[in-house]
Design a protein around this nucleic acid. Structure first.
Lengths: 222, 222
DNA sequence: CGTATGCTTGACAGTCATCAAAGCCCGTGG
DNA sequence: CCACGGGCTTTGATGACTGTCAAGCATACG
């Protein structure tokens, strides 16, 4: 299959909210995130946005758009990003012709569904510190599955800023700093220089009730 | 196709969290909800649960379980409920044989995905009153699509108790009562006798930034 | 060196959870 | 028929959690 690559600088939108008939991609390198900027409700001033999910190398970007023709959220590059462009029409033909692909797609979508459920439960029921701990553990596990963790010290690359954590967890940047400081003070995590170290996964998991996500075996679908 | 019906009294679990190889259903009559009870984190006392979504007549229950063999959440009957039992294996065979069914399944799952994104954004970014308003508008629209609204007065059946709203929106039952009182005082909604009336949809929508969900055309897939 | 950006910290205010009490509705039993 | 009890809702008082505003630092960059 013909493959087109595209390199996108950090901070650029790869897919726009509401975009129709857009292409879809595999994220080859770098981090991105799905997000939604909310129309201000009455009395809201600041324009907040909700980060719906992080996209890590290997993830699909815009599958929804390929399957339905329209995207319901935007995707933005968090770091510089290399994406691999797919052809939606060819993909749809393949989807129809190949039940195994269809299965794989459904499993991918369902896996995302489950993680979405988990996030909703965490944001709805947990306090700031627990939300943060949960987020970091989930991230760490996803990176592990892709062998992107430096095995020794549980050290992960961490290009996220406070404000990204805030938008992902539904809290203010200031309070993210407080929660992080708390975890640091308890010697549970360390953040420095674009890297994150989880010092005590067990204690973190106990703090927020995190349970590793067994889910379905991970495999690339494209 | 042979169809088995089952009637389930209110308050009973139809699917249990983590259940493997369970059946799946179409919700024929009555309301149910998907939910997750969280393991207590450190310092948590009460056992809270997060309602992930309401299930209304016509919705599928346990599709995830049919496709992957395992459920990641429980489903409980909110009212007395009539479900129609499907055969997971036959369904999977059909899924492989019939691309149109596969498409329909994917669209259903993706529609749920979008609603999940919306809920996350609302719970993460909105205050109590806005969350409640958004929930009620969304519910009203879903019921409209099924012709379950008494057309004249925007009056909906409303079997939910305060505590269900609280568990769905990530707030306390007490505060739900306050938020509802506020909406009532502003003459935006009325609640009585298991019914809900939306007095001013436009004002409600403006309050919480709700945008009707165009999504894909609604059609039954089974 | 000046400016811009992001992180951290403190003070204060608003939102919301918790606890508690009182009213309402309804089924039960006297 | 009416008293009683339990569940649900409403309301108030109080305090915890979190957002906002602001200032101080460190770093990067022109």
């Amino acid at each position: 299959m013909l493959v087109a690559q595209r390199t996108v600088p950090a901070g650029t939108d790869i897919i726009h909210d509401g975009e129709e008939g857009g292409p879809f991609y595999t994220l080859w390198a770098g981090w991105a995130y799905r997000y939604k900027s909310l129309r201000a409700g009455a009395g809201d001033r600041g324009r907040r946005q909700q980060i719906l999910d992080l996209l890590l190398p290997g993830d699909l970007i815009g599958l929804e758009s390929a399957l339905t023709g329209q995207a319901c959220h935007a995707v933005r590059a968090l770091t510089e990003v290399v994406v691999c462009l797919h052809n939606p029409k060819a993909f749809l033909r393949l989807f129809d012709a190949c039940p195994r692909l269809a299965h794989a797609v459904v499993e991918t979508v369902i896996r995302d569904d489950r993680r979405a459920d988990m996030r909703l439960a965490v944001v709805g029921q947990r306090n700031a510190t627990q939300r943060l701990a949960h987020f970091l553990l989930d991230l760490s596990d996803r990176l592990s599955q892709r062998d992107l963790v430096e095995a020794e010290g549980q050290s992960l690359p961490f290009p996220l800023q406070r404000r990204h954590l805030a938008d992902a967890l539904g809290m203010s940047g200031t309070h993210v700093a407080r929660a992080l400081a708390e975890l640091r003070a308890a010697a549970l995590v360390e953040v420095a220089e674009g890297h994150l170290v989880l010092r005590d996964r067990a204690a973190l998991a106990a703090l927020c009730g995190y349970r590793a996500f067994d889910g379905m075996g991970r495999r690339a679908i494209l």
